[in-house]
Amino acid sequence: MLCIGCRTCMIGCVVAHEGKHIFEVDPDGYDFHPKLKVIKTFNVSVPVQCKHCEAPACMAACKSDAIHIVNGTVIIRTEKCIGCKSCAEACPFGAIQMVTLGSARNADGAPRSVANKCDLCQDQPKGPACLRVCPTAALRLVKEEDLGQTLKNKRLATLGLALGAEAQKQAAIGA
């Protein structure tokens, strides 16, 4: 509801991964491959990105041992990726995009195309860049404890509702 579709997060993601030098180098000298993508439908504008599943379909589909869970985050080591696209096909969210790298080359000189997806800015000290640059704070990092807390809050709310309903019923009976 908070996302206004401005896509600042997409550039933030590239800058966080490619580094600040891209603002000086030749405009075609770096790879612009955001790891999330803002989708606009009739009902919603929102970035779609990897959910870091607990039993990732992409990891199961990968035959090149390139996808692993590294302390809770699903990481693709692109240097091992052979571009077989199985992970992209397996991901039900379409969170994995095949991208062609500008400089990297295969053994036979052909350009490399690898699987590209959110890595939660694994190596960034301040955590996910998209979250930091979003003007309306629409993005939120859901850690395990947050999940727990959210569930707890919802259950308390449910209990509250139930109590309220019960009290009303009593009142009705009483009146």
Partner: peptide, 10 residues
Amino acid sequence: TLCLKGHYGW
């Protein structure tokens, strides 16, 4: 806060 032009428009 800043938008994308603020962050990356220089």
